[in-house]
Amino acid sequence: MKNTSHINPLENEAIYIFREVAAQFEKPVLLFSGGKDSITLVRLAQKAFWPAKIPFPLMHIDTGHNFPETIAFRDKLVKELGVELIVRNVQDAIDQGKVKEESGKYSSRNSLQTTTLLDAIEEFKFDACIGGARRDEEKARAKERIFSVRDDFGQWDEKNQRPELFDMLNGQIELGQNVRVFPISNWTELDVWSYIEKEEIEIPSIYFAHKRKIFLRDGLIWSHSDYVYQEDNEEVLERMVRFRTVGDMSCTAAVFSDAADIASVVQEIRDSSISERGARIDDKRSEAAMEKRKQQGYF
């Protein structure tokens, strides 16, 4: 556009993808975790359909172990947007005996989300689930398509993916299949943060430096919380930290930081040399951790 200061090819691409989803699918849903990537998705969806409202609901798969700040933020945002929010709880799947809670030092509810997600897709007959995954996050994600077809069991068949040429997105599916859609596939962590800064998008307070009770294990900073298993010899410390990525409390590590506003966060990301998923405890389990979870239907 002329008389705009800045044309962002990534933003134009994401808006295009959102419009393709609305046009090609009958029951799309935006998977909302309360993290910065899904908040960015919401802004892009607003831009895609303005002056109309976002033409699909948001859904949160709640592990029950979220940071309270994220939940408060989620509820406020949904109210402002005037869109429907669907919440489905991992706790319900545990109570019904569908999944078994992990135990021990590295226990987390992160991988248990898959069952609840697949159940919700079936319950609402969603044919497209929009998520904030990015290809730069992790090696297996780097091969993911923008429209990624999943079978009845939510499985990802990485050897049989549809080629994606030019801008053309093929959303043709059979009954029972669904498509995972990733509008910000081509964004990097820094692209997301720069966009949040430029657009002045509000994000949960835990992304900024704050004083928190933590403990150290395997070189990572863990939150001291009822949801996180902690051994007796792991000493509780109080430090200035912030989160670079926000998952469930049991799988998200903090970084030491004094970055208390968006400009200093962007600067910190620019200077930093640890990748974002380096702070995800779930990926440290094994080299192929992400790929295995994806084959089982994880986002």
Partner: peptide, 11 residues
């Protein structure tokens, strides 16, 4: 805007 540039997603 007055002009939509190439590859912009507009209405």
């Amino acid at each position: 805007y007055q002009t939509a540039s190439r590859r912009s997603s507009v209405t």
